[in-house]
Simulated scan of single mutants.
Amino acid sequence: MKEIFIALKDYLVFVNIIFAIIIIFFERKRPVFTLFWITILLLTSYFGFIVYLFFGVSFKKRRALAKYYLKSNHEYSKGLNKKSMISIKKWIGLSRYLDGVLLGKMTHNNSFIFYRKNEYFFNSLTLAIKNAKKYIYMEYYIFDDDEVGGPIYDLLLERAKDGVEIKIIIDGAGTRGVSKSRIETLRKAGIMIEIFFPSYFPFIKIGNLRANYRDHRKITLLDNEICFSGGLNIGKDYVGKGRLGKWQDIGFSIKGEAIIDYLHEFERSWKFLKKDTTDVFENPVLKKRDYQLTPIQVVSSGPNYEFHTIKDTIL
Rank of each mutant, 00 (worst) to 15 (best):
L155M: 14
L244P: 07
K274N: 10
I129T: 08
L8S: 15
K90M: 08
G245C: 07
L263T: 15
N73M: 06
M85F: 13
F47H: 07
F19K: 13
L157P: 01
I6D: 14
S301P: 02
G256I: 05
V280K: 15
I24W: 04
K60C: 10
N283F: 08
T309S: 13
D99S: 10
S72E: 08
D312E: 06
K130Q: 15
K71E: 08
Y153N: 09
L155I: 04
D290P: 01
I206R: 14
P202G: 01
A173V: 14
K311M: 12
G56F: 00
T44Y: 11
N118G: 07
I183T: 10
V15W: 07
R28E: 12
N233P: 01
N118S: 00
F59T: 06
S179D: 03
E257W: 02
R187W: 09
L127R: 14
K161S: 15
V148K: 10
G150K: 12
M138W: 00
H264P: 07
T278G: 00
R217I: 15
K236R: 07
G104I: 05
G251Y: 08
D162I: 06
K9L: 12
K82T: 04
V32D: 13
K311L: 10
G100L: 14
N73S: 00
I259H: 12
P303G: 09
A132M: 07
R214N: 11
H108K: 14
T309I: 12
G93A: 13
Y97I: 07
R243D: 03
S58N: 02
I50R: 03
I191R: 03
I38Q: 11
N233A: 02
A132E: 06
Y97L: 04
S72W: 04
G231S: 07
L102N: 04
N212G: 08
G163C: 02
S95D: 11
G100Q: 11
F196T: 01
F33G: 11
F5Q: 08
E158R: 14
G48P: 07
N81I: 03
I193Y: 00
I170E: 06
T44P: 02
N16R: 00
L43R: 00
D144K: 09
I24G: 08
I6Q: 03
I206W: 08
G163S: 01
A128D: 11
K275L: 11
L70I: 02
E158H: 08
V164Q: 03
D261M: 03
R30L: 15
E119A: 08
N208H: 00
K311H: 13
I152E: 09
W247P: 07
G149I: 05
I191W: 05
E165A: 05
Y291T: 09
A160G: 01
V285S: 13
I254C: 04
I296V: 05
G177R: 14
S229M: 06
D144F: 11
I24N: 01
I204Y: 13
Y46T: 02
L156H: 03
